[in-house]
Write a protein that binds this DNA or RNA. Structure first.
Lengths: 336, 336
DNA sequence: TAGCTTCGCCGAACCGGTTCGACACAGCCG
DNA sequence: CGGCTGTGTCGAACCGGTTCGGCGAAGCTA
């Protein structure tokens, strides 16, 4: 069931079969038909490995994301799904690599063993050794997220600074004066996790601008931590009337904490943040939030990567998205 | 940066380098060290394509799941994560394939082009053309889920019949007499989706056994559908006091519907079902449910597949899991 | 009909590994 | 010293495709 077998049965040479199938050189209509018939009959499909070896392209892209130790979030799922789908549309397969760092064995397999033509990096940090490594190598990659010095790179990102600021302004406009920020876990913040940093930044600056009293918290990626965090918030400043969060996994816990404390949302307390809309719509009342357009970002990342693969010397491009805040039911005027 | 280059620099033949690295034939300690030094110096790693071509193994497994049209659920994410991680531990990469049916292009790529050594199938249907196809071909695969005639196959599954029945018994023990079943979307049920069928089955049989009055519903995989579904339930039979669900994505909507209808959980209404624990713990009150051990199932599937790849003629093995119901806070005595 | 182009196909080399058979050399025995 | 075993290495073939240069036949012009 290899190309030689096809050639033999069709009474032509191997190269002719190759050309007939790829169309890279003209082949007479007659032979082409004969070959095609044999191919159909035997259900022949060329071996991916052989093809990859011969022409140096694997038709596979790598999707690099951190190991599951830290829970996966819904956002990541949407990324993965949309990346796979967009890649399939461009005739690329997707190889998953659970890699934290550039020295990681799994990461080395992707690159060193040349299993993929390009890579998409998730969970970017401001100083990202994987991104730097790939950039040094000139290896085609696109980041989902934006490093500190991203201006000359390929990425699709969310403007977390602007989004967090928008949330603050939204609360301030409603009259809230004392609000809290619920971030991702401290470990992620310390390791330079992009969204955590920029979100915190945008929150802090905007709050200062509006003269608000704020407290900021890190919170584990799970409901129990969310509940505990909310208790801390109300303990530290019982007069707090609103919060902004980036932590979707903790969201349910935050709501539970509010319910336990007897604070009604949105009458007594407003909640908003940056969250995938599947989560925003799951909680009751539904969350007013900047919806993370994860599916769109995945698609854009693939488009960018495919473009880069097609024209290796193309100048870097990127998409920086600033989705609007979707007004739902979790925020209201302060002191209502 | 290929094996020839290494051989040249180390002053040996290509085959010697190959043997030194693979250890498949003895090489003198002296040459081995010299070769290793050159390898380290140049950071050489053999090309995956070339190796795959030569020895017929790609060291990659395919993870086949349906396209994203239908939302991804949290369970799927946990599967994917644990599969990738378990595979990495066995030195396998994971190739994602968004395939619905066996004639699908993406599915054909995996198999026909021999991109993977084996496959793990998600989202199994009772009559599954992909599973049948692979079985006919003798292609090494493991299903996550159990077809109608699974006894002679490789799979890791959840005993949805038993789990749904356990939920019914739990409610019946608490004194509930009129309960509802909230299934996955009708389209999935019609297409023979395994968990939807067996779950419905287990529910119906157990309810009959206990002499309960029941109604069963299909419900879209999103909160809005869940809310609508709950309204229908209370409209059809206002005396309903409990429900069992398999639909995690709708869960938030079900709760919201109950709140809108003024039914307090668990005082006026009990909710239970089969759900990944990340969801069970997110809602308030936390859901008493059979937690889907998605991560464990992913791991087991990889173990099974690796075993099958290692011994092609091994007899089929499987794991059928029946996780216990985790008592949380969403169920209580009827008429309390 | 000689000479030139065009078309269609073939053979060979190559991609980068793995593996098999053979061979040179050393050490041991009789 | 001849023959025998065992160790370490090499060369060549192979995996299954792609691609390049060239060649023979057909068609056209002079």
């Amino acid at each position: 069931m290899n190309i030689g077998e096809i050639a033999r049965r069709a009474g032509v040479s191997r190269s002719t079969v190759s050309y007939a199938l790829s169309g890279k050189r003209p082949v007479s209509e007659d032979t082409r038909r004969r070959i095609q018939q044999v191919v159909d009959e035997l259900g022949y499909q060329p071996s991916a490995s052989a093809r990859a070896l011969a022409n140096g392209r694997t038709s596979t892209i790598g999707l690099v994301f951190p190991p599951a130790g830290n829970h996966y979030t819904g956002m990541q799922l949407d990324f993965i799904g949309s990346v796979v789908e967009a890649a399939a549309a461009c005739d690329y397969d997707v190889l998953l690599s659970p890699s934290g760092v550039d020295s990681d064995r799994s990461f080395q397999r992707l690159l060193g063993e040349r299993r993929v033509d390009g890579a998409i990096l998730m969970e970017i940090r401001l100083e990202d050794d994987r991104a730097d490594h790939l950039a040094r190598l000139g290896f085609p990659s696109v980041a989902i997220g934006r490093t500190a010095h991203a201006e000359d790179g390929w990425f699709v990102g969310l403007d977390h600074t602007a989004l967090a600021a928008a949330c603050v302004h939204h609360l301030a406009d409603l009259g809230h004066r004392r609000i809290a920020f619920v971030n991702r876990p401290e470990q992620l913040l310390r390791s330079g996790y992009e969204s955590a940093h920029r979100g915190l930044d945008g929150f802090t600056k905007a709050a200062a601008e509006r003269g608000l009293t704020v407290r900021t918290y890190c919170c584990g990626d799970d409901p129990a931590s969310g509940q505990a965090c909310l208790e801390r918030i109300l303990h530290d400043d019982p007069a707090t009337t609103g919060l902004v969060t980036l932590n979707e996994a903790a969201l349910g816990g935050l709501y539970r904490g509010l319910a336990h404390a007897g604070r009604h949302v949105p009458r007594d307390f407003s909640v908003t943040g940056v969250v995938a809309n599947r989560w925003a719509e799951t909680v009751t009342p539904q969350l007013t939030a900047a919806d993370v357009p994860a599916a769109e970002m995945g698609r854009l990342a693939v488009d960018l990567l495919v473009e880069r693969l097609g024209r290796p010397e193309a100048p870097p491009r990127h998409h920086l998205l600033v989705p609007p805040i979707s007004l739902r039911a979790s925020t209201g005027p302060a002191g209502a």
